[in-house]
Design a protein around this nucleic acid. Structure first.
Lengths: 102, 102
DNA sequence: ACATAATATGAACTATAATTCATATAGTTT
DNA sequence: AAACTATATGAATTATAGTTCATATTATGT
């Protein structure tokens, strides 16, 4: 895989997280690890689409992959995602409750 | 201003942060508060563009505004942005040092 | 009330990212 | 090695977001 060089990690990482499909994948992986195909089935979207997104999530260090035969099992980097998610929740309750559906 | 109702705060917020211009604004405001026009001048971009972005940043609760005559002075919600930024820095050093320019 | 300064707004345009589709690759099983 | 399963890849298309431009608004000073 070609090496990615980035000048602004914040921009890249937040952009990566700011996508509905990718966030759906993250949300699914919060429960437990999944095979690529299972993610696609669960989310009801194309295998290739999930593959593209997983690649990016992996490149950003948000998910990790374990190979088992032809299968690739993706797991979440909870060490980053959980506190990140908590921070957002906290922000919402504190600063913009009124923006969100309750 | 019309009320915004959102179903997925994570998506909206990260998307908002995942934009170079908006991040430039945030970075500038990390130093000190600025008038809208000054931000535009400093970043070398259009007044209207900055206005659009500030609106969104404000809607997300990332910046606040204080009115002084016709001027509007924007300040950063450091309570959210600082820990968020730190989390990303930590993530980078721990999980993807090799992705970034040193 | 008029002129001015600062900022906001919305529509048109442009750039970028997301998705699909067809196909390639890489392990596995027989 | 041929057939199969799981996943990856890249180009083409489609959708979405960013930017610009012209104009509107809002407060202030004369």
């Amino acid at each position: 895989m070609s090496r990615i060089i980035i000048d602004n990690p914040h921009k890249l990482f937040f952009e990566t997280l700011g996508n509905r499909t990718r966030w759906n994948i993250i949300h699914l992986l919060l429960g437990k690890s999944h095979r690529a195909t299972d993610i696609a089935v669960r989310l009801g979207c194309e295998q290739s689409l999930v593959s593209h997104h997983l690649k990016r999530l992996e490149a950003c260090g948000f998910v990790r992959v374990n190979t088992n035969g032809t299968e690739r099992i993706y797991s979440l980097n909870t060490e980053t995602i959980r506190p990140l998610s908590k921070l957002v929740d906290k922000h919402v309750t504190k600063f913009c409750k009124e923006l969100c559906k309750s």
